[in-house]
């Protein structure tokens, strides 16, 4: 498991990126959420042996990351943290799917290897799209977009509360586990009983905090309703963004642009 402090810092960094100010950042969040969904659905709709046709899709995350002025190294690092998991899952495919597809020099390439590679590329694309969505939109705006797209208020309020207190509670958790480590004389891990009481303490403190927050809400006239202001609107720019990207994705889904390009270049060369 990742270190607690690291995870919190990481979360803060991703969150701070969303405070950037670029044309992409300024777009209404609904356009970005919907475009991301279309992107992911088209990417995963390829059959499992499709590999090369996935590559043209890189244009989307790369362009958005650039226009949104995101630090490329950071995004790549975040994505590469997930790739090993995809690799482990994908590696099962060559074991079960040994059907020969073609020979690449001395190597026999089986369907399993192709689908394994496909899984990894899918992972990079879908995970990248999710990170980039948050980095150019921000969690708050994503939630507002969800609400305006029909998500029940109860749930979006829950998301916002959760997100707000992740920062407070992970820090609290980090303090508790640091205190324990300092007294555990280098022994790793935690027995069940002491884990129970450590987490139990954390839980009780959390509970009391919820009571205090509730008190603060009541003190300011809370009656069960949340009010919010409208921030941005869905204009022509948003429509253009959504329709433009979706058209591109669908086109790339139907035409293997990589195949075409490859044929073209190889034709020119021969």
């Amino acid at each position: 498991m990742r270190s607690i402090d690291g995870a919190v810092l990481d979360l803060k960094r991703l969150d701070l990126l969303a405070t950037g100010d670029s044309a992409i950042h300024r777009l209404d969040a609904r356009a970005k959420v919907l475009t991301t969904l279309v992107f992911i659905v088209t990417v995963v709709s390829f059959n499992r042996y499709e590999f090369t046709a996935l590559f043209p899709f890189f244009i989307y995350p790369v362009v958005i990351a650039s226009l949104g002025n995101l630090p490329a190294g950071y995004i790549v690092r975040k994505i590469s943290m997930v790739v090993p998991f995809a690799f482990v899952v994908g590696m099962l495919n060559p074991l079960f799917d040994r059907e020969l597809f073609f020979h690449l020099g001395p190597f026999a390439v089986t369907g399993g290897w192709i689908s394994c590679a496909s899984i990894i590329i899918r992972t990079v694309l879908t995970v990248g799209a999710a990170f980039i969505l948050v980095a150019v939109t921000g969690f708050l705006s994503v939630c507002q977009a969800l609400e305006r797209l029909g998500t029940p208020r109860t749930f979006t309020v829950q998301l916002l509360f959760l997100y707000r207190y992740i920062f407070v509670l992970t820090e609290e958790g980090a303090r508790a586990s640091r205190a324990r480590e300092l007294r555990s004389c280098g022994r790793k891990g935690l027995g069940l009983a002491s884990f129970g009481s450590l987490i139990g303490h954390l839980l009780i403190r959390t509970w009391l905090r919820a009571e205090r927050i509730h008190m603060a809400m009541l003190a300011r006239g809370f009656t069960g309703e949340f009010h919010s202001r409208q921030v941005s609107g869905f204009g022509w720019g948003e429509l253009f963004y959504l329709v433009g990207w979706s058209t591109l994705f669908v086109t790339l889904r139907m035409e293997n642009a990589a195949q075409w390009l490859g044929r073209l270049v190889m034709g020119l060369l021969s």
């Binding site: 939630c143 509360f161 008190m215 603060a216 809400m217 919010s228």
Partner: peptide
């Protein structure tokens, strides 16, 4: 931290007046 529960400072300060 118990008092500031809304997503931004604006929303938090506006919480009370909206409830009024």
């Amino acid at each position: 931290d118990d008092q500031l529960f809304m997503p931004t400072v604006f929303d938090d300060v506006a919480f009370g007046p909206f409830n009024l």
